[in-house]
Amino acid sequence: MNSVQSLIQPQVLAQLGFAGVVALTLTGALIAVFPRNILYNVLGLIICLTGVAGLFVYLGSPFIALMELLIYVGAICISIIFAIMLSRPLHLSLPKRHLPKVGLALGVGAAVFIMLSAIISRTEWQPAAMRSNDWSITTLGTYLLTRYDLVFEVISLVLLVAILGAIIISGYARRSTS
């Protein structure tokens, strides 16, 4: 009885939840890379991103967590799946792994990892109590449209270019076939 009660203390539960979320992220990442079935890879990516959303919950921003789900899982992964469904059938024999390609991928991954960890280690992280607590949606919106409006505009520009590219590709493809 007491052992159960000690297990369901809020602190213990929070730590268990955190371990679960981290496990989810890592498992998802592994599934996203290793299996040779490309649909499994996407599903692994989805599991991984769901775990990342969980991490945002632990960082105290449920809004960003839900946005992560809505955009990365709901929009991006679904469009990746679309692309897979329209590409070559899965029952055909798989192409072999080319060693140079794997090496290149490893190199790029390592470079990104090193850069990110350099940035993370250089940043002076403040304990949660010392930061301002106001990370509401209103604050985020105000920041996006005042201090970070250039970033905001650049992101919109990238999306605009992507949309135009999609229209041109599909338009030309249709014109050349008909």
Binding site: L39, L43, I46, P62, F63, L66, M67, L69, L70, V73, G74, C77, I78, I81, M85, S136, I137
Partner: peptide, 25 residues
């Protein structure tokens, strides 16, 4: 009573689509 309650419903509704897709595939 979450302060992003409405978003929660729409964020998780994508899993529904995903399940249909996985089942069909």
């Amino acid at each position: 009573d979450m302060n992003v309650g409405l978003l929660l419903i729409f964020a998780f509704s994508t899993f529904n689509v995903l399940a249909v897709l996985v089942g069909g595939w």
